[in-house]
Design a protein around this nucleic acid. Sequence first.
DNA 1: CTACTTGCAAACTGTTTGCAGTATA
DNA 2: TATACTGCAAACAGTTTGCAAGTAG
Lengths: 132, 132
Amino acid sequence: MNYSFQREKILETVLDSCDHPNAYIIHKRVQKKIPNISLATVYRNLNFLANNGDILRINYADGDRFDKTIYPHCHIRCLECNNVFDFNNLDLQNLNFIDNSYDIKSISINLEGICKNCQKRRREDLNGTKRK
Amino acid sequence: MNYSFQREKILETVLDSCDHPNAYIIHKRVQKKIPNISLATVYRNLNFLANNGDILRINYADGDRFDKTIYPHCHIRCLECNNVFDFNNLDLQNLNFIDNSYDIKSISINLEGICKNCQKRRREDLNGTKRK
DNA sequence: CTACTTGCAAACTGTTTGCAGTATA
DNA sequence: TATACTGCAAACAGTTTGCAAGTAG
């Protein structure tokens, strides 16, 4: 086996996730497969897998999240529900670098806003209030 | 007085900083003006000032940094010296949003790379090695 | 008098690490 | 048999908070 049983299951869990879970959530999901797995093991392996390029780490102030999609793409975090979504609607090809003082290794673009669901809920809440 | 003495001095310190210091560094700098100021006060006031739009907070995994420049601009962190620099060399005007599902509130672009100084030092180190 | 602010210490959160035991090549 | 990995608990770093005392309007 290439990877330890635990590492395999952690990778599998991230690959099966369509959201962008943090270590804690991943730990809870992996526990369904390995009930006694420790959070430290999850952290250690997420670090390993991210460094190895198997998964992508996204930095957030309230904890890093992980992404099965490893090619460069943008993310948007909903300020209301705090969920993170892929955001492929920004044309990165047109980015113009006027300067080359830096040896650029990576670029990360993170947006914040309100997702469709929360926009809808806001409208409904507002209507409910009005009717009263 | 609009702001407390401590708050004034903290703001002043950030406005006088040409780098992008974190709370700890700002605390050390403010201590030169108010020797017994506590780190908690610095944190509380940085939060206040950032929420109030007096200064800008930049999220980093190893701790938030603060910027006297509050208009939207990009940052680049040097992977070698860990310093953060303003990066105004990206033409943000040309960013094309193909989608408007989200109600976008903010966009932050963070680059990583090697700064001029560290590129230079790398070359010198390499030459030194070769000469041996 | 009231609301706000401070310094201090303790608490909190996400993450890492030391260790002794276990699994793997 | 040597190396890598695990679970556990303790440690760690950045940040926040409860509190009693102090300050400003």
